[in-house]
């Protein structure tokens, strides 16, 4: 049991770091481990499902295939995973969203068994804001800094009103776009819930 767990953790950490997209890579690790680790010790041995963690780059309903990009930059690799009527959570296979695809090999090809959204975890002390609340902050003219964390290429095409772009992979170089006062409200967003 202990051995299996140890074998799993480095893989999960790696899989999580390889992920691209909206999800926060580091903080999802603690969330991922309990999924496998605390849901009953025996399940780890019972369910050695391989997984793909990454960004869904394409879904073809005609061919019933999902393309998921695993890895970043030059190391990114696109995997094609088939799905059928038995695949659970197909609604989470949305282009541009980060997903976890559990799969099994059938006839030498990966078939999706369970698809989950890869949810981001908020750092402690940070709260979530919903659309209506954000809209009223903007309408009321509240002084705050709205940060678009998406890549510059996406942000320049169209962003929320008054947002400044700080791509998350270039935070250090562009952190000067944050307000001078550490008490001012900062609202960060990107391209999706995951």
């Amino acid at each position: 049991m202990q051995k299996t767990l140890i074998k799993f953790i480095p893989f999960l950490i790696m899989a999580s770091f390889l992920t691209t997209g909206c999800a926060q890579t580091g903080t999802t690790v603690p969330q991922l481990i309990p999924q496998h680790g605390t849901s009953g010790g025996s399940r780890i041995q019972d369910r050695p499902y391989p997984i793909f963690v990454g960004n869904v780059s394409n879904v073809s309903n005609k061919a019933k295939v999902i393309a998921i990009d695993v890895g970043k930059g030059a190391d990114a690799k696109t995997h094609l995973v088939k799905f059928d009527d038995k695949t659970k959570g197909i609604e989470y296979a949305v282009v541009g969203h980060a997903s976890i695809i559990n799969y099994e090999m059938r006839g030498g090809e990966p078939w999706a068994t369970v698809i989950k959204a890869k949810l981001a975890q908020l750092p402690s002390g940070v709260t979530e804001i919903k659309t209506t609340e954000l809209k009223s902050l903007l309408d009321q003219g509240t002084k705050f800094t709205l940060v678009d964390a998406r890549p510059a290429k996406r942000s320049i095409e169209g962003s929320l009103p008054g947002a400044v772009n700080i791509p998350s992979d270039d935070f250090k170089a562009q952190a000067n776009k944050l307000p001078e006062s550490k008490d001012e409200l900062v609202v960060a967003f990107c391209g999706g819930p995951t």
Binding site: C22, Q24, L122, V147, A175, E184, V187, A188
Partner: peptide, 22 residues
């Protein structure tokens, strides 16, 4: 990665951070 930005801003000392997850 909005939550990543939030985490880093927090480290820099920003006290009032929200994430528009959707």
């Amino acid at each position: 990665m909005s939550t990543d930005i939030a985490g880093q801003a927090k480290k820099m000392g920003y006290k009032n951070i929200k994430v528009y997850l959707e």
